[in-house]
Write a protein that binds this DNA or RNA. Structure first.
Length: 156
DNA sequence: GCCAACGTTGGC
DNA sequence: GCCAACGTTGGC
């Protein structure tokens, strides 16, 4: 079992939106490194941290889990979609999604500024300067620290 | 809203 | 295949 962190702008799609939907495909990833994690490594049941960017405060807001095998991102084939990619062949799709299932909100947001100060998270992709990766692997020890910070000893 | 960091595109 | 120009991300 692997752990991941997914970034989203809550103005576009928030953890509240995921809660309301229960389950949703995580579309619009248009970065090859992120694509490779989704397509090649994500498995049903993997743990997911949801991170809100470009808001106040920015930080990890809760938890979800991977709920499907990877499959081609339907938005890449639709010319009406923001994420339409005319260069993606239907017989060899360029972009992939997985379904993400809501688990819960953390009791409080874990702000990025705090995570950067937390011992053990120095190597976390999220805390690296200039890291824009929207789909990030999280190490098990980092997952444990984050759960503990969130006040959830049961999951840590 | 600014702009540094980063990724992608395309002319050559 | 280099790299300048351009576009995007996302903290601040």
């Amino acid at each position: 079992m692997n752990y991941w962190l997914l970034k989203t702008e809550p103005e576009v799609f928030s953890l509240d939106d995921l809660k309301a939907a229960g389950r949703e495909h995580w579309d619009g990833v248009r970065n090859y490194q992120a694509r490779n994690f989704i397509r090649d490594e994500m498995k049903v049941g993997d743990g997911v941290l949801i991170y809100h960017s470009r808001t106040q405060p920015i930080g990890i807001v809760g938890e979800a889990r991977v709920a499907s095998e990877p499959y081609p991102d339907p938005t890449q084939f639709n010319a009406d979609e923001k994420y339409y990619d005319p260069k993606s062949p239907a017989d060899n799709p360029r972009w992939f999604v997985v379904d993400i299932e809501y688990v819960d909100h953390f009791p409080k947001v874990l702000p990025l500024a705090d995570l950067k100060q937390t011992p053990g998270l120095e190597k976390m992709v999220l805390t690296q300067k200039g890291s824009r990766l929207s789909v990030q692997p999280v190490r098990p020890d980092e997952w444990t620290i984050v759960q503990r910070l969130a006040g959830r000893a049961d999951k840590a």
